[in-house]
Design a binder for these strands. Sequence first.
DNA 1: CTGAAAGCGCTTACAG
DNA 2: CTGAAAGCGCTTACAG
Lengths: 341, 341
Amino acid sequence: MRVTINDIAKAAQVSASTVSRVIADSPKISMETKERILKIMSDLHYHPHFIARSLSSKKSQIIGVVIPTKADIALQHPFFSEVLRGICSVAYKKSYNILISFSDDLDSEKKNIDHFIKGGISDGIIFLSSNINESIRSELIDMQFPFVVIGRPKNENKLNWVDNDNYQIGFELTEYFIKKGHRNIVFLGFSPSYNVTLDRLNGYKNALESNGIDINPDFLIDGEFDNSNTISNHLKKLFLGKIRPTAIITSDDFLAFEVIKYLLDSDIKVPQDIAVSGINNVPVSEFFSPTLTSVDVNAYLLGLKAFELLDKVIENSFQKNYKYFERIIVPSDIIERDSTK
Amino acid sequence: MRVTINDIAKAAQVSASTVSRVIADSPKISMETKERILKIMSDLHYHPHFIARSLSSKKSQIIGVVIPTKADIALQHPFFSEVLRGICSVAYKKSYNILISFSDDLDSEKKNIDHFIKGGISDGIIFLSSNINESIRSELIDMQFPFVVIGRPKNENKLNWVDNDNYQIGFELTEYFIKKGHRNIVFLGFSPSYNVTLDRLNGYKNALESNGIDINPDFLIDGEFDNSNTISNHLKKLFLGKIRPTAIITSDDFLAFEVIKYLLDSDIKVPQDIAVSGINNVPVSEFFSPTLTSVDVNAYLLGLKAFELLDKVIENSFQKNYKYFERIIVPSDIIERDSTK
DNA sequence: CTGAAAGCGCTTACAG
DNA sequence: CTGAAAGCGCTTACAG
């Protein structure tokens, strides 16, 4: 049936060890045997069996990409695909395969991660959200299992993570508006459970302060929307208030789309009556009308860097008790389009 | 270090075989031993080692999701994420894990697939595009390796695939426009290398014919755009022609977004001057202005069904030489929005 | 430079 | 209902 290392060994009149060394391209093998065996391998269509290799070498060459609970729906967001592409771009070059996991609830998430780790399936894990469950996290740390988080986690010490500087994103975007003469700037879409949005909010606040603009609490709108707490209600209230805003920063492009839709439906012109920006620079932003000002967060790079970091962590994990922590900041760029011009 | 089946066996004073049977929940084991061993397993934090299990059982419980060459950029399209979610939704329940593969070129794609199959990593493969390479495909068939294609492949016989009825999508969408009184309907974005778009185009043609409307060759615009062959050039030409179109069917929402952007920039009103529809119903469609009429292709269901089918194929593959082929059609729905009202 | 042997952690006929 | 043994296809000290 399957051609094994032993078949090759037999055909080449050598031992299986030798064949194994040829596969591993060990320098201990003479060029001629190497070539001879290589030829036989290709003649017999031999292909090493990864599972068997993993079992004896204790490395699976598989890394798990975990999309934490509730982020599964978020996978629809192009951000995740981009990150995934970034991860894969380098992973394959380093001959790693990518196993993905998303789960509806914490239980199945834990089960999934258990499989990955205790089941010996993966050599390392990338979490596609900073919102990593506490108990999972401490378990990983206890086991000294290599993992990297995309996004800055709540307790960021002694963890490997890569992220944008979200504080700076909020800061710069706000300054961008201030420089354009805006003073009444709304920040819409922060959520206490997501560091990302809080960092962006803080950047916003500090930019206002350092430009001598008071923070108007009415202009801070959290993003935990539901049937009773709708975007349109918030916006309606906003325009009934004494001080009307002239700009809205939303924490994500899709929020911006919703906001703009509401505004246009209410005959409020963007950007003439009010400027709106998103964050994340999804592909549609340049086709939306008006085209949307946004911040390119370089999701692809985020993924790529995360993998490179994980690779490093895995390497280091071979040295017993060596601990290695690194945080990587990926740059971001404001992309100016019509919605703020 | 790692707690193995032998540790459990020792602690429980039974053989490893017995422990193994408990893990597999074999009916041959008495309830009391079962419970006793289960307790010990949990006390010792035992977790079965998947790689080891795979090696001896010859099943990895991993299925590969292959995104064929050049589709990797397309992963940015929400369609793929949706399909992926659909696949995962059932796969995990059946305790399968998902390994994903995308490659820049055919060589690395083949290498990847070789790993999956000959490397014993995956029990089956789902191709996330009908555009599967001929040589890969025939090799898989020769090896009788279980695989399912999402999309109707060129030579559809003796293959397992799941797809929408794209002919019908084209037909119904066209009839929808005809019923609204349109006669000069453009079809934009077919591509000879993609069956999907050709099927949709054929549906379009037949709908026109069966309503006694001549096909205007000027109204058929292929979708292989580049720097010289731009959408705006095509549209410009269209509006200079004798017969001006009153509706445009685009083969994808993102094309529709581009088209609408151009039209609005040229002061052509949508839908007043011309109606535009997309296909695929991406999330932004309802926020675009005008909100975009589209066709929901149920990508999630496409993925779900593909996995179910693959599962069946894998089951059947255990019976030697049993061949099982099935094609599954997933329904689609026209979602009417402002862009055609 | 090459080989014999043990082992990775399971499963699964076979036997009782 | 349970166990002893062989085997899945590799790798890797150890020895020469």
